[in-house]
Amino acid sequence: MSPTKNLDTLTDQLCAALLVPDDPAQMRRLLTDLCTPAEVRTLAERWHVARLLDRTDMSYRDIHEATGVSTTTIVRVARFLRQEPHMGYRQTIDALEAANAG
């Protein structure tokens, strides 16, 4: 391994590391080492908002009032959940639902 500033390489390496933990406790330990408490909170809030948008009929305003997450963040999560081609939220929500159903 050699030092790099290449974002694609760095991102690929991060993705590989995130695939290593095989249970929530291990992932929590990695996230605690990798992220600041504020960064973990931000990621957790975005994930929570994505699931609320997918599983409920709550308005953006209702989600904001219930969670304290900014409406700007809620709109961004909704856009990535429903419109952007990456489909990361969608694929993960669907995979978790399939795993829980099986």
Rank of each mutant, 00 (worst) to 15 (best):
1 M>S: 07
18 L>N: 05
15 C>E: 10
2 S>C: 05
31 L>P: 09
14 L>R: 03
3 P>F: 08
20 V>W: 07
27 M>E: 07
26 Q>A: 13
34 L>P: 06
3 P>V: 10
67 T>G: 01
40 V>F: 02
91 Q>W: 03
34 L>N: 06
51 R>H: 12
47 W>L: 15
20 V>S: 08
27 M>R: 09
32 T>N: 08
92 T>P: 08
13 Q>A: 11
38 A>V: 13
73 T>E: 03
41 R>T: 15
11 T>L: 10
101 A>V: 08
28 R>N: 11
8 D>H: 10
53 L>T: 11
24 P>V: 07
38 A>H: 10
85 P>L: 01
61 R>M: 04
45 E>A: 12
51 R>D: 04
68 G>S: 01
3 P>E: 14
29 R>I: 08
85 P>Q: 02
100 N>I: 03
69 V>H: 00
12 D>M: 07
24 P>S: 07
92 T>G: 15
35 C>V: 04
58 M>T: 11
11 T>P: 02
10 L>K: 03
34 L>R: 13
10 L>M: 04
11 T>I: 06
102 G>V: 10
43 L>M: 14
9 T>C: 02
77 V>H: 02
88 G>N: 10
33 D>F: 04
5 K>F: 08
21 P>I: 14
66 A>Y: 03
37 P>T: 05
12 D>K: 15
41 R>N: 12
33 D>A: 09
83 Q>R: 15
98 A>L: 10
71 T>Y: 00
22 D>N: 15
5 K>T: 15
76 R>F: 11
59 S>Y: 08
45 E>D: 10
29 R>A: 14
86 H>D: 12
26 Q>F: 02
29 R>D: 14
38 A>S: 09
25 A>Y: 06
86 H>A: 12
1 M>W: 07
88 G>K: 13
39 E>T: 15
63 I>E: 00
43 L>K: 13
30 L>A: 06
86 H>N: 11
54 D>G: 06
16 A>N: 09
78 A>D: 11
26 Q>M: 04
88 G>T: 11
59 S>A: 13
40 V>Q: 07
22 D>P: 05
14 L>K: 05
81 L>E: 12
30 L>G: 10
58 M>I: 11
19 L>E: 07
42 T>N: 09
26 Q>W: 02
90 R>Q: 15
72 T>C: 02
35 C>L: 13
42 T>K: 06
17 A>Y: 02
87 M>C: 07
71 T>K: 00
73 T>H: 00
87 M>Y: 04
8 D>Q: 11
87 M>Q: 15
94 D>A: 10
39 E>W: 05
78 A>Y: 03
6 N>H: 06
5 K>R: 06
59 S>Q: 09
3 P>L: 10
32 T>G: 02
60 Y>S: 02
40 V>L: 06
19 L>G: 10
41 R>W: 03
27 M>V: 04
92 T>C: 12
40 V>P: 00
7 L>I: 14
94 D>Q: 12
4 T>Y: 05
8 D>A: 14
58 M>N: 09
